[in-house]
């Protein structure tokens, strides 16, 4: 449990951070919930670690014209317990409250979880369902990437080595929208065997909007657009929900590991999709 030698920088501003990252060789440290264990196991041996932990600008929560901007360094606990987040974007708050355990929620960060893109992490399900946008900043420029282009594969995102995530941009939930995050916990790690985030809004007796994000089932989190399409326009009856949920694993290559086979994961994904939608309705 002893990492290899590395250089350590602790920038005080975003600009200092991206300057340090400009050569593309350094590794970013946020809450350290993934990177530090990997380094202690020597599975990761970066020569230079840039610790964003002391940059105050990255822990802000602001509302701006129908969007909620969450700083990348907000801890899961902060996201889960912020009154503003709970009111404006309850799905992300609820999801945050299900992550890991109390210690992880007090250390781990929103941006760190997104950037690590663990196939079983909780946040990505909600970020997909929320169609979140990610602001990426590098030395001389910045860009905003939609979540659909952000998660590329297992542990792989659109973030380039020179970039940091500064904030996630989430929609302020319209009145009448119900949300829910439901997960089957992997008992050792607390990660999701399968986790499903749902947002549903009914209008005039029909489902006007449905968004479903899924984690744990595939190599990376995804939006279950097949489920959404089946649900939208339906009455949202129990049968409608069941029929829609059955489409959650369509075209998906399901993960298999010690804790759950791919067949079981598929089944659980359907059950939890139905439950998340029911709870959101």
């Amino acid at each position: 449990m002893i990492p290899q030698e590395f250089n350590y920088s602790r920038p005080g501003t975003v600009q200092e951070a991206v300057d340090l990252l400009a050569d593309g060789e350094a590794k970013v440290l946020a809450g350290g919930m993934s990177l530090i264990p990997l380094m202690k196991l020597r599975l990761s041996a970066p020569e230079h670690v840039v610790d964003l932990g002391r940059i105050p600008d990255l822990s802000r929560i602001t509302e701006n014209g129908g969007s909620l901007h969450l700083g990348a360094l907000l801890t899961h606990h902060q996201v889960a317990t912020s009154a503003l987040v709970q009111e404006k974007c309850p799905l992300i708050a609820e999801t945050a409250s299900h992550i890991g355990d109390a210690q992880v929620r007090n250390m781990g960060t929103l941006g760190g979880s997104a950037a690590h893109a663990d196939p079983a992490a909780d946040y990505p399900a909600a970020l997909c369902a929320l169609e979140a946008k990610v602001r990426l900043v590098r030395r001389d420029s910045e860009r905003v990437v939609g979540i659909g282009d952000f998660f590329v594969d297992a542990l792989t995102t659109a973030v380039e080595p020179e970039e940091i995530i500064t904030e996630l941009i989430l929609p302020v939930e319209e009145a009448g929208t119900g949300v829910s995050y439901q997960k089957l916990r992997q008992p050792a790690s607390g990660f999701a065997i399968v986790g499903v985030a749902a947002r549903v809004r009914k209008d005039g007796g029909r489902v006007a909007m449905a968004r479903v994000g899924v984690t744990g089932l595939a190599a990376s989190a995804y939006r279950a657009t097949g489920v959404e399409a089946l649900l939208e326009g339906s009455e949202g009856s129990q049968a409608d929900v069941a029929a829609a949920a059955a489409a959650v694993d369509e075209g998906i290559e399901a993960i298999s590991d010690l804790h759950a086979s791919s067949d079981y994961r598929r089944h659980v994904a359907r059950v939890y999709t139905a439950r998340a939608i029911q709870a959101a309705l």
């Binding site: 050792a188 010690l258 804790h259």
Partner: peptide
Amino acid sequence: LYEQVVYDDTGQLVTGEYMDYALPKAA
């Protein structure tokens, strides 16, 4: 309910950390 030391069929210990060895937590 949770715990098992697992060696795979090639003799590798695959529950080599608490990430996969499920010790019950207080909750």
